[in-house]
Amino acid sequence: MSGKHTGSRKAGLSNDDIGPETRLELYRLQVEIRDCEKRANDLFFQNLIKGTSHLSLGQEAIAAGVAMAMQPGDKSFCTYRGHAHTLARGVPMEQVLGELMLRDVGLMRGKGGSMHLTSVEHGVMGSYAIIGAHLPIACGSAWRAQYLGQKDVSVCFFGDGTTNIGAFHEALNFAAIWKLPVVFICENNLYMEYTPIGDVTAVEHPAADRASAYGLERIVVDGNDADVVYRTAQAAFVKARDGGGPSLIECMTYRHSGHSRADPAKYRPEGELEKWLERDPVKIYRERLREFGISEAEITAIDAESKRKVEAATELCKASPPAPAELLTTDVYADGGWSWRN
């Protein structure tokens, strides 16, 4: 998903602090994530994706906004709900869908699966499926940057449910006392898995209301507005790069689908989804582009290109063979094999 969109511009757009180039990129990322996630959902029902999968439908603005604010070399640490964050760093769709389909074309050739998307060359340093585990890991990456005098920032995405596990609190304290260049992004989609986060959390904002305990600023933003996310992330990255230490950003959003493939999300009160669909990030952003005078033609061109990419990726994945049998025992140890005895 690399390469900036270019096209005709109406006068005056460049006066905005984000600007038309970045805005079109933000839109493109959101649309492509949306279309790719929808395709993942369809492929499940065709039994072409096995196991489980956790979609980010409705949460695209966060992955897109943060990724646009990141620089090459910055590191992403994702969760099992990590397709969006992986795509947003520029990983080709066929490598993501291919991994979901457990084909040889997948990012890890099917050895990791949907919950462990990793693409080191794009700065995606893994997707972690044990809640909270990657917050300390992101701290370690940030410690390395600080130790070696490197300027990259480590960015850690997680859900609201993560704020109630011990590793969240250990990591925040650790990052704060060592002043690490790490940015924690909490995607508060209102449900830990099936249970409303408010039913199981002592404070209203599960991440932000804990920030003060670690000497951090309380930040809650509209996670469905990519502009807001982008600006907030930019400020946090500048602070981290300047040696100002970590940030914790709580982005309010909503999951359009259930927790995972197995979850039809019947626990949601009537009308809640509909209310949030009105605040759909892709819809909001399409309106935003129009407000800034970007032409319908440019918008529909992005929409069409996204659909074309999804189709092409799907066909490529369907044609890809499954992972070869010899991969079963490779890369258990650093010598490339699995030998535990002589």
Binding site: I137, S141, L148, A171, F174
Partner: peptide
């Protein structure tokens, strides 16, 4: 470090996988 065994091992891992 603080008494935070998860932070200790997690930080060690993040540092190890990125070059230390």
């Amino acid at each position: 470090t603080p008494i935070s065994e998860q932070a200790i091992l997690g930080a060690a891992m993040g540092a190890a996988m990125t070059g230390l």
